[in-house]
């Protein structure tokens, strides 16, 4: 079955659509409730993980190695869940990192600034003008975060299959539109898209295992074959390759593994200056 990734702008009027959509489609809804699992894998506090997602300042304050581990584990956990099918995902950035999977319908929910500001004003006891200014800053922060973490501007309409303005479309109608789109032939899973999702899920699982050893490690997968690319100074290359191989081979689904090591020219130059 097709899967759905919803990205909702903050402070939308009305209730969260994801549970209603999931219930109408007979799907499971996944999102923030997966954070404890991810936090436990990372051995970090859930509140720290939550704060880092979507807030560029909190994100930038985190050690780069931990940031890389956070992203790797979020991807691995979420892709594994998407692979299991019949899922509406919201709030965990699937729309930003799942690429080229034709049976994943990416949906952006927005509303007019005035309506969102009204929600924020009521929530935080602000005047409408103050809320509008706060909202603008929040949106800019969110854009910065999505660019810093995933290299994508979350607010760009081109990223999505559907963009729905909840100031113009009733929530019930929006759910019908999304369900209708997901039900169309275009979004039906096929061998190609299922393989793409499986490959991305496998690459993410492997990367999540390797990222503590090398935060910059690159991993690709196709039909059970996994290609790992790492950078190391000459004296560490053999050891690095062996360590990566041991970790990667332990990941379920890895049928064949190739580890390529590229010379760390900057590291080598630094070595010569010691």
């Amino acid at each position: 079955m097709p899967v759905v990734a919803i990205c909702a702008a903050s402070h939308l009027p009305g209730q969260d659509l994801a549970p209603t959509l999931a219930s109408q489609l007979g799907y499971a809804q996944v999102g923030a409730e997966m954070l404890p699992q991810i936090a436990s894998r990372l051995q970090v506090e859930e509140s720290k993980l939550q704060a880092a997602l979507g807030a560029p300042k909190a994100w930038q304050r985190i050690n780069p190695k931990l940031r890389a581990r956070m992203l790797a584990h979020i991807k691995a956990v979420l892709l594994e869940r998407l692979e299991s099918d019949r899922v509406v995902s919201s709030g965990l950035a699937a729309h930003l990192f799942v690429q080229g999977v034709s049976h994943l319908c990416k949906v952006r929910l927005i509303a007019d600034a005035a309506d969102r500001a009204a929600v924020l004003a009521q929530e935080q006891g602000l005047k409408q003008e103050q809320a509008l200014a706060r909202l603008e800053a929040l949106d800019a922060d969110r854009r910065q975060w999505s660019l810093a973490a995933f290299g994508e501007d979350e607010s760009a309409a081109a990223l999505y299959d559907l963009v729905i303005n909840l100031s113009r479309v009733e929530p019930g109608q929006a759910v019908k539109i999304i369900a209708g789109t997901v039900g169309s032939r275009k979004f039906q899973p096929m061998t190609f898209s299922l393989d793409r999702l499986r490959d991305q899920a496998l690459a993410s699982r492997v990367r999540a295992e390797l990222v503590a050893l090398d935060p910059e490690v690159r991993v690709n997968a196709g039909q059970g074959r996994v290609w790992v690319q790492t950078i190391a100074v000459k004296r560490q290359q053999e050891k690095r390759v062996q360590a990566l191989k041991v970790l990667a081979q332990g990941v379920a689904g890895v049928a064949d593994l190739e580890v390529q090591v590229l010379p760390d020219l900057i590291g080598q130059a630094a070595d010569t200056m010691r």
């Binding site: 034709s102 032939r185 275009k186 096929m190 061998t191 190609f192 898209s193 393989d195």
Partner: peptide, 14 residues
Amino acid sequence: AREAMDKGAFDFIA
């Protein structure tokens, strides 16, 4: 892939 499915393909394989 989406165009092919929309036009009635049964499956699409890379």
